[in-house]
Structure formats: C-alpha cells, structure tokens
Amino acid sequence: MKNILILTQFTLREAFSRKIFIMFSGVTLFILAVAALIFSFVSVDDFQGMVNVNGSQLEIFDKIVEVLKLVIVVPLFGIGIFLAIFSTSSFIPHMLEKGSIDLLLSKPVSRSQVILGKYFGGIAVVFINIAFLILGSWFLIGIKFGNWDPSFLLTIPTIVFAFAELYSLLILIGIITQSSVLAMMLTYLIYFIISPILSYRDNIFSFIESKTTEYILETLYYVLPKTQDLSTINSELAAGGSVPDWMPVILAFTFIILTIATSITIFSKKDY
C-alpha cells in the first residue's frame, strides 16, 4: 500500500512538472472566466420579472439554472476527458523507457503495485483538475443565482469515473505497445467514435436487418467502454436528477477491473 502511495505521489509530481496542471488550470480559468463574463450580462431580477409575468417564477428560474449547468457540464465532459487522456497518455510509455523501468523494477516494488500506483496517480491528477473546474462553476452559479444544489458536485466523480475507465484502457495499450501516440489515438477512437455509435445501436438496428451485425454491435457495446452512457448520466446528475440506469456504471466498473488485471498480468510477465 505504501509503495502504491509513493508511486501515486510520484505520478502527481510528474504531471505537475510536465505542466499538466498548468494546462488544465489555464483551460479551467478560461472556462470560468467566460462563464463569469456571460453571467455578468445576465440579471437575475430580469429572469424573476419575466417569470412573474408567466406566473411560475420558481420553476422557470430553476430551469434556467439547470440549463446553465448543462451548458457548462456537457462540453466539460468532452473537453475534460479529451485533455485528461492527452495529458496522461505518456505516463506508462515514459515509465517503460530503458533506464527508467530498470531502476523502478530493481526496487522492492511488485509489478502490480507499479501499475496501481500509476493508475491511481493518473486518476488523482484528473480528479484534482476536474474538481477545481466543477467547484469553480458551482461557486459561480451559487454566487450568481443563489443555487447551491450539491448534486451538481456529483459530476466530479462521474467525469473522473468515465476517465478512469478510459485510463485503464490507456494503460493496457501503453503496456502492450509502449507508444503514447498509439495509446492516445486508440482511446480517442473509442471515446469519440465507437462509444457514441454503440450507444445508439438500437437506432442502427432499425436500418440494418443483419443478425450478425446486431450481435457484433451488441457484444462490442458490452465489451468496450461506455463513455457515452456515462456522459448521459453525468448530464442527468448536473441537472439535479438521479442515475437513470446503473448498468453502464456496473459494466464500466467491471471493464476497469478486467483491464487493470490484464495490464498487471501482461506487465508481470514481460522482460525489460
């Protein structure tokens, strides 16, 4: 456990030195500044006045805040995860470079501890940055609209969990290929193209009447990361709702366990 903690801290330090935090903080501050600027043009009294005419003040006011939250969270899910993958894709290939890996493995650290340390380190990096952004947005909305609904903060673990699923894949590809570019490209492919397509497989089935294709798509859906579904859950939570379907969460968790276990098995058998 102590070794995992040391490696996690070390990964955080690596992220800090590679200006990952500065990059994330820059993007975060930019997003918050844009939001603050937009908010400065919006008068809460105007909304309330408008709502008073229609006679249902509270409901519409909440609806506006809900939309504002979605305007922040939905792109944030995409941008945040995009940046997170970009920033962490080199962690494993760098670690596996000749000279680094020899030293690391010559220490009293098991190979599973190395993988877990890197995994939790990457998650910690993303957690800190996402938490900064979401908390910043929450404060802005709270200060401007007096809406301090804590359910908005549930998007922090949701986004981090979606990243954790993709990061486990990033680690597996990194260990097999030792290439950060390949690991990043394959993860983006799944995140931006395959996962959204598979999420709408029911619509595809209505166009294609092939049982084989249906079977393949259905299998791929259950096997590959379900980031699109997690994005939907994230939006629901941001809007103050609850998790509509726990199945993607359970499948994502299973995916993480299996992928990390496979990474450890492959890493434990490799010669360096």
Partner: peptide
C-alpha cells in the same frame, strides 16, 4: 521482490526523472 530492500543497483543506462 522484498529482498531488494537490501540491494542497490546502478544500471548501465539510467534515466532519472529530469524534473
């Protein structure tokens, strides 16, 4: 692997975190 607590190693090509 725990025996390596009592072992030191200088590899031929060693790479330390540059930062």
């Amino acid at each position: 692997y725990k025996v390596k607590r009592k072992v030191g190693y200088l590899p031929e090509s060693h790479k330390y975190p540059p930062y």
